[in-house]
Design a protein around this nucleic acid. Structure first.
Length: 683
DNA sequence: CTGTTGAAATTTTTT
DNA sequence: ATTTCAACAG
């Protein structure tokens, strides 16, 4: 490493398109970056280039999809800047839209009449509050069923994030709820009032308030002037509201860089719209577009397959990815007998690749829905293969962790009704009714917990009540260190938890873990905020540095695999109904999104790609009731030429099965019966 | 008003 | 399999 590299030395490592993008002038600039084309490297160089050119780091805003992505990019940009002996990126504003919104809103809270101590609700908290309102309005008290809280929340969220009228959202996305339009309006009105009264913002509010902040004639210009450059990663997965925010940050597009790949837009269910990236050139009349097409990730045979898969999409920026890596064979399409057979195939090949020198952590199994990996997880455990699962329910979203956090949150913000309604009914003899009364009393006393000392608890809670009130009063004294606070809460809560839930042991460990890592946070508010805005995947993830020599296989939903890559990738359950999901085949555009999702999964692979699907799905664990699976419609016949086809070996009979003692051939009485049943059950 | 039980409906992806 | 709601006993 030379002591005095020049910026040109660093840029020399980029290809011409990447370099053009990295060193482009004021913008607006759209970088259309196909999968594996060095998008991150380009963005990293652009940040470094801007700073090296003299842009003040604190006047750069970098918006990414996860905080981890932001941290990694800034780290890499720092590496480049160090070589130039240039100051680093510490003062760059970075993070997700939501995280940046919370920082900006905290700073400008007073100007728009927002209490600076506002707390942030995650999706389930918000649903709970919506449910409180729903019960109060007695909307469920009709002969026809009112949509449940999750559905109501989705409708509300879509209105806000897609900036669409309720009627339109109902017609286009929730046609079965159309008859409830009037009730939903009342519900949402009351819901908004309740959030205001509680001093909370939810995910939707963070964006809504940021947008409003920018629209404000007083504060808006101030916030806008704060940034010279705004870079947005994964632009294909932003929604209309986020596009509005970007537009308000820089109406003429000066300093704006958007990076994305329309072919990888997979968050429409969260109101993201591929229109943001497709219409970027229309939105900013003078926009320049740089397209990155050279793929550095995958072998040419894999790319040929993925190119053909995405060629089935209707509207997109046409890219034809190519690679210089002509090594390697075609991807493999694996026909497995059933789910167990599929799991067995994956286990065997994972081990084979490890034998061949590919660490577990350089291999990944990808699937559409979190529960698709359950059987595989059992097989992996049996084969002693360590794995880490990404996506699905995160550990901070589990009931016991949410309970624990609710104590802290209520102390932080006594107006937070959801937290109160969560922890009060944990006490024996206190249900929703009394909890609501108590929260009302608390509001009237201005959030002073001592008002609860006057209350006469029911006999069941007589002993615990004074301790409970004392606990919350203690937590209000901010002098206490955070780990100590968590310790007090845990001591009080753990016994309650044990009576309330099963699987007590692992839950207790989670609570201990949480206490251990509490010292990493600056303060209580910071901990609550970070945990809701960037929920860690596991306690281990929370703890920060996983042990280096820890080798584990990656299991991940396709959504959580975004932006990542592995040497060996197994896509499992590539059967119609799973990919595309049965739940997303109503609308043609939903199917398009599922196609892109499949494309994202395939393009994660560097050297080896296996696409597996089981021929049969059993309805229950016992008996032979099963249905037939169809290969995913995204691999029609004309595409099969890109794949090598493989049928798994007949699975060896499970030693627990009584058949194993008898016949040794692969034909067993059971398999014959199965086949016979196909005659009338099959399609 | 709480806590339990049973029946009925719904079943993905996540900041 | 999980969540929601109504019915009922304490």
């Amino acid at each position: 490493m030379t002591a005095s590299a020049s910026i040109d030395d660093l840029l020399a490592k980029l290809n011409p398109q990447q370099r053009e993008a990295a060193t482009f002038g004021d913008g607006p600039l759209l970088i259309v970056a196909g999968a594996g084309t060095g998008k991150t490297a380009t963005l990293v160089h652009r940040v470094a280039w801007l700073i090296a050119r003299g842009v003040d780091p604190s006047r750069i805003l970098l918006l990414t999809f996860t905080r981890r992505a932001a941290a990694e990019m800034l780290h890499r940009a720092d590496g480049l800047l160090q070589q130039l002996h240039h100051r680093g990126t510490t003062r760059v504003w970075s993070g997700t839209y939501h995280a940046v919104a919370s920082r900006l809103l905290r700073r400008h809270a007073k100007a728009i009449g927002l209490p600076p101590e506002f707390t942030v609700h995650d999706r389930t908290d918000s649903e709970d509050l919506l449910n409180v309102v729903r019960t109060e309005l007695e909307l469920a008290k009709t002969d026809k069923r009112f949509p449940k809280k999750g559905t109501c929340m989705s409708i509300y969220s879509r209105c806000v994030n897609a900036r669409q009228k309720l009627e339109r959202v109902l017609t286009e996305s929730f046609p079965w709820c159309r008859e409830w339009a009037e009730e939903l309006k009342r519900l949402f009105d009351a819901f908004v009032d309740r959030k205001e009264a509680a001093g909370v913002l939810d995910y939707d509010d963070l964006l809504l308030y940021w947008d409003a902040l920018l629209a404000d004639p007083e504060v808006g210009p101030e916030v806008r002037k704060q940034f010279d450059c705004v870079l947005v990663d994964e632009y294909q997965d932003t929604n209309a509201l986020q596009a509005d925010i970007l537009f308000k940050l820089s109406p003429d597009g000066k300093g704006v860089t958007a990076v994305g790949d329309d072919a990888q837009s997979i968050y429409a269910f969260r109101a993201a719209t591929v229109r943001n990236i497709l219409d970027f050139p229309k939105h900013y009349a003078n926009a320049a577009i740089v397209t990155l097409e050279q793929n550095y990730r995958s072998t040419q045979p894999i790319l040929e397959a993925t190119n053909q898969v995405i060629a089935q999409a209707k509207e997109r920026f046409t890219k034809n990815l190519w690679s210089q890596r002509s090594d390697g064979g075609r991807p493999v399409l694996v026909h497995a007998e059933d789910e167990a057979d599929q799991a067995e195939f994956v286990v065997r090949h994972v081990l084979e690749h490890r034998e061949a020198g590919v660490d577990l952590r350089r291999q990944a199994v990808l699937f559409r829905a979190s529960h698709h990996s359950i059987l595989l997880e059992a097989e992996l455990a049996r084969a002693n293969i360590p794995f880490q699962k990404f996506g699905g329910l995160k550990f901070v979203e589990t009931a016991h962790v949410k309970d624990l956090m609710a104590y802290l949150r209520l102390a932080e913000n006594p107006r937070d009704v959801v937290s109160g309604m969560r922890i009060l009914p944990l006490l024996p003899g206190i249900g929703p009714g009394k909890a609501q009364q108590l929260m009302l009393t608390l509001q009237q006393s201005g959030g002073d917990f001592s008002c609860w000392n006057q209350w006469r608890p029911p006999t069941g809670a007589a002993e615990l009540w004074p301790k409970f009130v004392a606990l919350l009063q203690g937590l209000t004294r901010t002098s206490e260190e955070l780990p100590a606070q968590l310790h007090r809460v845990r001591k009080f809560y753990a016994p309650l938890m044990e009576t309330k839930y099963d699987h007590v042991e692992p839950r207790l460990r989670d609570l201990e873990q949480l206490e251990l890592i509490a010292s990493r946070y600056r303060n209580r508010r910071q901990m609550l905020l970070e945990i809701t805005l960037d929920p860690p995947n596991s306690t281990q993830d929370l703890a920060g540095d996983p042990v280096l020599d820890d080798d584990y296989l990656v299991l991940s939903t396709i959504h959580s695999a975004k932006g990542l890559e592995w040497d060996v990738v197994y896509v499992i359950h590539a059967a119609d109904g799973n990919i595309p999901s049965d739940m997303a085949t109503k609308h043609p555009q939903e199917i398009e999104e599922e196609l892109r999702l499949f494309y994202v999964a395939l393009t994660r692979a560097k050297n080896h790609l296996y696409v597996c699907y089981p021929l049969r799905y059993y309805q229950s664990r016992f008996g032979d009731q099963h249905s037939y699976a169809q290969r995913t419609r995204f691999l029609p016949n004309h595409l099969l030429a890109c794949f090598e086809q493989q049928v798994t070996d007949p699975r060896q009979a499970d030693p627990d099965d009584d058949e194993s003692a008898g016949p040794t051939s692969s034909t067993t009485s059971r398999s014959i019966r199965r086949k016979a049943k196909d005659l009338w059950n099959g399609i």
